[in-house]
Design a protein around this nucleic acid. Structure first.
Lengths: 128, 128
DNA sequence: GGGACCTGTCAAAGATTTCTGACACATCTC
DNA sequence: GAGATGTGTCAGAAATCTTTGACAGGTCCC
């Protein structure tokens, strides 16, 4: 989905993007990185959060394909990890969502369909 | 943000939309409602989840302005709540995110800026 | 009245996400 | 070596989200 030409994302891809972006810290991270790329420690100071926490957020964003990190050696020999934002484009409309929802993997849950759902009294029927 | 002409959403609005959409069930709900509007109980059966759960998800979607529910009286006198999807449009790009992030309220947290952050040993300095 | 629908709400359990404080390792400078 | 910087990881607490079962009310039909 991170490609510049807006292609139809699979359900799981879009879901990952949405959950990645649906967090104030991560929105600010994208904003900060768009303004100017930096390395982890500097970014942590700029945003005002701890480094382990930022690390986790960056991983989430990178897993969704929204940012990319590269290890680079500074002139003084220190290795630092610089992050850049991916120029993603994603149109969010009912249609887009529906299209994506059709290809949702639901990974991690039962993939079968035996009806063991319902909760109310309106459940005991339906077997007849 | 739910307006048809894509206006710039505030940070909190966009955040609400993203967290609302970032859930497989809610994506399927939007998809199902786009195909044809229904009432809560029928939708619960169609999606295959319990009614109280669906109720919660619908509330979340409605709070984000993505769907709207209306109580309607059927011909036989039963009152049922029909839901429709709002024709929202939302362009998701680094720029959009950055723009929204600038107006993030961060409601529910400290709104001041006294530096009580950082975690590593790399924190004890910075005051000098 | 009893049964089949509809609506809503609540409390508690379960599962995830978020956050923090260590820890370990590296290089460069004094 | 000590101190300041950078990297990464881990375990556990804290907060949030998701899910379920039970309960409340309503109308209609036999």
């Amino acid at each position: 989905m991170p490609e510049v030409p807006p292609s139809a994302p699979t359900g799981d891809e879009l879901l990952k993007v949405l959950t990645a972006l649906g967090n104030p810290h991560r929105m600010r991270i994208v904003a900060a990185l768009l303004k100017n790329r930096t390395y982890v420690s500097a970014l942590a100071r700029e945003i005002g959060i701890g480094r382990p926490l930022l690390h986790m957020h960056l991983q989430r964003l990178e897993a969704a394909g929204l940012v990319t990190g590269t290890l680079e050696a500074a002139e003084d020999g220190k290795t630092m990890k610089y992050y850049d934002v991916t120029p993603f484009v994603c149109e969010l409309t009912p249609h887009t969502i529906a299209r994506a929802a059709a290809t949702l993997t639901d990974a991690g849950a039962d993939t079968d369909d035996r009806s063991t759902h319902r909760s109310d009294r309106s459940a005991k029927e339906e077997a007849k």
